[in-house]
Design a protein around this nucleic acid. Structure first.
Lengths: 236, 236
DNA sequence: CGCGCATGAGTAGCATGTTACCTGTCGGGC
DNA sequence: GCCCGACAGGTAACATGCTACTCATGCGCG
């Protein structure tokens, strides 16, 4: 049964999906009671899930008032992608410096899966292989805490705009950005891997920001600049 | 009153202290009931605190068995300090590149407080200013998520060994490591700031690892090497 | 007609009851 | 003496009861 896992985990997942899908409108106020009814569980697991969501900043708890859904503000997206830059760019360098046949094989595999998904215009499969590719690169650092934290960062901005505007054009563009990353890693070129990953993340972040702001090119430019101002890591 | 804040937050803080102080022996098994008695609250806030601690990895929950206190393994310390390196080193670079009179003033202030604390051998005050100094450097990135996450990383390894073996010699050594960082930042020398911060973090991590392993020089050397293998960020 | 205050609905937080389940233990069969 | 299975204690997870608090509504008073 679905009840095999913990209810609070189930609710956590459902809640996050609901927020990202826009079912729970951004800025709206809800209560533990309502959400418990919605998911047909008692208030306890809902409360636990909400507390954990509050830790990640996706909602805020207003005492005796309710649960406020925190919309993806431009600033929040900047914060998330800044951290991803700080963590994933060095990870790419590290991957390039610690190659193994197995790693190359895996990366190529995910890249192939992404290509397939693009052809089929299967955004779901696309994001799964995208996810796996990033995860595998991070895994070369053999730091479970790092992997899990980046996972949580990805969850915050997951899909969001990109999934809703599933133009195959966008899918293709984002997908292509991964090739330079993998190629640089396979070549053992750490600086190139870092640069490629940085480009990819800045592009993705800018895309999200542009979609958020209504697509104004000015805001997109600002975002790109803000992200690029970071002291980007590179192998010394 | 102390009841002004949420009980679950209070319990979370107390639990973390108890674990770090060694009151709750590493590897030992406890139950929500016991802990609720210990803190004289009901099981609910204890459970919430335990769940949040489990998210950070300080404890693991064994269903129908109890709460296992996860001791600070060498690997966990490595993970934490790797992430701190990835985040705080670029932050130092950024601080050097975005100087302000106010920032310099603050950093000097914390440095002075640390010196005082060393003279008085007041490890508590020392760690407070240490904390504030790191926090201020990170704050230059104006990324609240980053600041909070590093805070949680610090909490995990907080003091631990260092506090227990409060040799003024150790205090002095650690304190002195901050001066090159601040000097490089004040000089606007980003690479130097990055290098100094990296040295500081590697030293601190190695110190913790050495104390953990019983002080064997071999393990300390391994730790230092493992941490130094990271692709350290530097301004490009 | 406008303003303040009582009031009631609704809420988070905390306490406590309930359930299913894991595990160590003890006693009987061999 | 040794193994195995029923049993009981203890537990996390979940459900529900309770309390203090917030705030919008509307009614009465000026």
């Amino acid at each position: 049964m679905t009840d095999a896992v913990k209810l609070s985990d189930f609710v956590l997942k459902e809640l996050r999906s609901a927020i990202l899908n826009g079912e729970l409108e951004e800025g709206s106020l809800h209560s533990i009671y309502q959400l418990a009814d919605r998911f047909e569980v008692s208030r306890t697991p809902v409360r636990e899930a909400v507390l954990r969501l509050a830790d990640t900043g996706m909602v805020t708890i207003e005492k005796n008032r309710g649960i406020r859904v925190q919309g993806q503000s431009a600033d929040e997206i900047r914060r998330v992608f800044e951290m991803r830059l700080l963590l994933e760019v060095p990870a790419s360098s590290h991957a390039a410096l610690h190659l193994s046949d197995q790693l190359v094989e895996k990366l190529d595999g995910y890249l192939a899966l992404m290509s397939e998904a693009i052809v089929r215009n299967d955004s779901d499969a696309f994001f799964r292989s995208d996810y796996a590719l990033h995860d595998r690169i991070l895994a070369t650092l053999e730091n479970s805490r790092l992997n899990e934290y980046v996972r949580s960062l990805r969850d915050i901005t997951q899909n969001m705009g990109v999934l809703t505007t599933q133009h195959s054009r966008t899918l293709r563009a984002v997908g292509l950005e991964h090739e330079p990353v993998v190629n640089a890693i396979k070549a053992g070129d750490a600086p190139a891997a870092a640069a490629a990953m940085a480009d990819h993340l800045v592009e993705t972040g800018s895309l999200l920001l542009a979609q958020l702001g209504g697509g104004g090119p000015a805001s997109s430019g600002w975002a790109s600049n803000a992200l690029r101002q970071l002291p980007l890591p590179t192998q010394r």
